[in-house]
Amino acid sequence: MHEYPITEQIIKICSQHCAEAKADKVVSVSLVVGDYSGCVGESIQMYFDIISEGTPCESAKLKIKRVKPKLKCPACGEFFERAPMSFACPKCGVDGEPTEIGKEFYIEEIEVE
């Protein structure tokens, strides 16, 4: 139940961009969401449909691109998705370090008409 304020924010940003472009309505919204922004669940389209009623985003389609978190190996530089219960680099076995990959949460583009 954190989707509500987040969805409101998404609609606000998209409506602003739509107005600035002097368009009438938003047709689609492309969101990039890292898995560590777990706050965006399956139910977001449902919230979006309800909250967007009466806004330029009404009946817009949400396209969500998920990004899997990656660690970076400090020894060999490899970026990798970790195995469960381990942070070890698949190439050399050294524990990887956190990166920004997987923490994204932004609106990439919208389509308007």
């Binding site: 739509c18 472009a21 932004y106």
Partner: peptide
């Protein structure tokens, strides 16, 4: 016409 707008804004 449908136009694409580059947004690139963090939701948070």
């Amino acid at each position: 016409d449908i136009r694409k707008l580059n947004v690139m804004e963090n939701v948070m």
